[in-house]
Design a protein around this nucleic acid. Structure first.
Lengths: 199, 199, 199, 199
DNA sequence: TATGAATGAGGATTCATTCAT
DNA sequence: AATGAATGAATCCTCATTCAT
């Protein structure tokens, strides 16, 4: 009799082992054997729960995306003012809660790999599009559309740059400093509109 | 006697083949065989000019770094005003001349890989430090030190974010749009200081 | 669940294939592929049961040593008189039972290789020391210590010389002739003591 | 204009480099490149003076054989009495003058390799036959033929055993101790005949 | 004569995947 | 559901040999 409800647990464990392995061993040394060993399973079992290694990697990236989405959803729930909502979005992307060094390392690895793996690339694009569009949606309530689009793009680019830095730094993301830079950018862009520069 | 002076040419060819392979095949599929085939050589010759594959990859990253440095040097030569010099630095990092899609793809791959390869990591840190410190140097002539440091950090983060976007986009870096975002950030930061916001 | 208890069998098969390959192909042409082919397995499986090729070679040498030890132990069990025990030791080292031409070829190859492979060298030294010390132990009961040491050294050297000859000869060790030479040496040395030469 | 008489010098240098490399690197790591580097030449030149690597190895073994032969010839020139001539032969094979640790290591490597290389094997057999036959020739003047043959075989086997030990010992051949063992064997065998054991 | 660049086959080793149990 | 033995292709690297210079 198969144990009921085991599948999601096993999948979750393997995905977490994958993230840990990418962080500690590097993507190149993240083999099926290592992942399964880390998850306390046998190498063969991976192909019970995932079609193949690529499928596991894709599921891992999707999981990372879902985590960010969930954090964002929670934080947005508490904010009504567009400004607060923007801060909430930024805060979600820079929060240390779930965006651990391991997760950041995995993100970066996938980004680098993604160009050549269409399925990974699609997931990435979806995640970034979602960020852009939620920033744009809030900004449009504060700025003319043309500016909103530009500022949204700048802001999300800045967020990605901060992640890149975080991945390279041995200490992970220094949330406070990162927030300072991102919020400063946002405030400046909003202030420019409200307080137009003198002729 | 064999042909003289061939070594730098062969090394250059192999490095270019490496960049091309990372761009088109992805770093994971960039094998010694593929690199040599792309360079029109036999697999064995690679180890005549480089100690091993890692040595070739490191040389490739160094070459990318040297190219950015050279472009920056040339552009800075034409600028005297700190503002112009800052634009020159930004322009160098976003210029399409040598920073081809292939080069950007290679950068990103190295960044992702670098965490686990100390030698690559060292080269990366040196390149980023150089960018930060040249931005800081110019900004200090326009802003108080404390702001200069912060703006330099924000600006270089933004530049890296733009590169990341470029690597993900299938069309490479759209220089004009990227310049707009970066210069806008710089101008805003400088304007804030000169035109302090009313109380 | 995969077959249990297969590991010692597979290891044994691979070790025997190694000995056969050293004998028939020579150590230089004893590749992992040839060994595995000879054992009827795939090349990859070797690294499932041994860390690497050197580990397999070391295990092979250890196995050869263990075989000689076992033969010696059996033969010594039947002898009580020191003279008989010495003959038993000599007989074990020259017996055709397990010391096949293949085994002798392997021994010699390891001796030649050993100088540069510390782990192999250690195993070799242990085997030779054991021979020397068991000869010495028996001889001390028949001769003054100083002579026992010298005769033990001479005898074990003679045994090794006989092995060397065996390895070079295309027909392997001619046990009878070898025994004649070795026993003659032993008898002479013992007789000398008992029947001192006249002044 | 080719330098005259250079060929034998170059050949000699390469052979000596080969012996040194077998001693210090081991036969397995004795590559054409290493040999030529050791001889201060380029890798390609080896094939000017030797057909291929095997040819160089064979020439090396022949040279080692010729050296022993030459030492023996010189020592035999000073001896007339059969006993002295036997001591001279033994002394030649155990002399430290030309039989350096490097030479001994090379001998052993060739012995191990030889089984599978017919040309090497032929040279080896010739060298050993020569030793056997010169020992036999002298012994026949002191012993009945049947004993002379046996003692010659025992003596040459003992000499080879001593070489084997020398090759394994990190300090090379301890000539004095080796001479003691070999001469003792010879004296005993001769004494037995002259002083027949009492009934 | 002599160089060392170049080749390409062959080495050990790793790994995703399959499959009998 | 789960194991881990087994496969075989692919990887990096080494090396004897050739050859243009």
């Amino acid at each position: 009799m198969p144990k009921l409800g085991l599948e999601p647990i096993r999948r979750r464990q393997l995905i977490e082992a994958t993230i840990a392995s990418i962080h500690e061993d590097g993507l190149a040394d993240t083999t099926v054997s290592r992942i399964s060993a880390r998850a306390g399973m046998s190498p063969g079992i991976v192909h019970h729960y995932f079609i193949n290694k690529d499928d596991l990697l894709e599921a891992t990236l999707r999981t990372l995306g879902a985590q960010v989405r969930e954090v964002t959803r929670l934080r947005l729930g508490e904010a009504t003012d567009p400004r607060d909502r923007l801060r909430a979005i930024i805060g979600s992307w820079l929060a240390p809660e779930q965006l651990t060094p391991a997760a950041v390392a995995a993100w970066l690895s996938f980004w680098a790999q993604g160009r050549k793996q269409p399925r990974l690339a699609r997931v990435q694009r979806a995640i970034i599009c979602r960020l852009d569009s939620s920033l744009r949606h809030e900004l449009k309530q504060l700025l003319p559309t043309i500016d909103a689009v530009r500022v949204a793009e700048g802001l999300s680019t800045l967020l990605e740059g901060l992640w890149l830095r975080a991945a390279l730094s041995p200490y992970g993301l220094e949330t406070e400093r990162a927030m300072l830079i991102a919020i400063d950018y946002l405030d400046l862009q909003l202030a420019k509109r409200r307080e137009p520069q003198p002729a």
